[in-house]
C-alpha cells in the first residue's frame, strides 16, 4: 500500500510515526484516512472547508500533485508520498 512520509510538526499527533502505510486509492482518500486514524491531526491538516491547508504540499514519487491530478491523483500500492510542511526555524 502507499507509504507517506510525515513532517516533524505532525508526527506528534500521529503516534510519532515518521512514515505510515495507508491503504488508499487517491491522495484525497489517503489524507482522509490519516485524519480518521488520527483525529487530532485533522485540524492541523485541513481547514474549516476540509481542504488541505496551504502551507502543506504533497509529492507522489517526488512530483508535486499540482503537476499530477491534484488531490484527485490516483495512487498505486508502491507509491511513495511526502507530506511537506513549511517550517520557519533557522
Amino acid at each position: 500500500m502507499p507509504v507517506i512520509r510525515i513532517p516533524a510538526a505532525l508526527k506528534y499527533y500521529m503516534d510519532n510515526h515518521s512514515e505510515l502505510d495507508i491503504p488508499a486509492s487517491s491522495v484525497i482518500d489517503l489524507l482522509a484516512a490519516l485524519a480518521e486514524r488520527y483525529p487530532s491531526v485533522k485540524f492541523h491538516l485541513l481547514d474549516a472547508d476540509g481542504k488541505l491547508r496551504r502551507h502543506f504540499n504533497v509529492f507522489v514519487n517526488g512530483v508535486h500533485i499540482r503537476e499530477l491530478d491534484g488531490l484527485a491523483t490516483k495512487l498505486n500500492p508502491d507509491d511513495k508520498l511526502i507530506l511537506l510542511a513549511s517550517a520557519a526555524g533557522g
Binding site: R5, F59, G62, V63, H64, R66, I82, L84
Partner: peptide, 8 residues
C-alpha cells in the same frame, strides 16, 4: 529525499 519543484 529530493522533490522536484516547478514554477507555480
Amino acid at each position: 529525499d529530493f522533490v522536484t519543484l516547478k514554477k507555480n
